[in-house]
Design a protein around this nucleic acid. Structure first.
Lengths: 113, 113
DNA sequence: CCCGGTACTCAGCGATACTATGTACCGGTA
DNA sequence: TACCGGTACATAGTATCGCTGAGTACCGGG
């Protein structure tokens, strides 16, 4: 993806991860994998883990340590009640933004050509 | 708007301003006004001017100084050819993001409840 | 000659994603 | 026991972007 994506993801990646967790609990590596499946192929591992630390500190997720057969214990994340509220606000903001941009797009195309 | 909007605008505000300029040339204060009209009521003046400096340095806009009857000369911005290309890339990235998020939204709602 | 409003500029801050490492844990093999 | 490879997670440093709050420049009116 282009460099524009990097900046565009700021603020949305958090919501994306929360939405993924709304579908079902998952541990870090699994979340990264799901992001890749959904087309976000260029998101670095470190980015996801750093984000998970943030949303955990904000109390948006519950964490459970689960021993793994291969490697260190996994941290399984699931949406907390607070996280659900936060996700709702995210969708509200997102909807607002898409609406404004849809308008802009049609306006720009009407006069742009 | 909430704090989420601030982060969500990173990377999109630039595209929004370019799209506004695609509708028609404008000077800084006018661009700020158009943003407000379009619902972006909380965007600070300083933010817009800083953004304009950036896109000018990137060559995405042409600038013409026009004397004003009231106040300092206005800097009128208009999309350059390079800016138009950049705007196209922006819409491509934006479309990708909206598609992925639309999918996510339905998935999260199906299993989320 | 100063005042108020317009238009633009700048320094410092906080938050986010990226890159590139580094650490911890486990099973398998000899 | 001792090593190795792969998995899962963590951290340090960097760049970008939008926000806040102040400052500068220009003009007409009283």
């Amino acid at each position: 993806m282009g460099k524009q994506m990097t900046e565009m993801l700021k603020g949305t990646l958090e919501g994306i991860v929360l939405a993924i967790l709304a579908v079902g609990a998952a541990h870090g590596a699994e979340i990264t994998a799901r992001l890749r499946e959904r087309g976000f192929t260029d998101i670095a591992e470190g980015t996801v883990y750093a984000l998970l630390v943030r949303i955990e500190q904000k109390g948006l997720v519950d964490v459970e340590k689960v021993p793994s057969e291969k490697g260190p214990p996994r941290k399984v994340y699931s949406l907390s009640a607070q996280g659900r509220d936060y996700l709702d606000e995210f969708w509200t903001s997102w909807n607002f933004l898409t609406n404004q941009l849809t308008d802009l797009k049609t306006d720009a195309h009407e006069r742009g050509h």
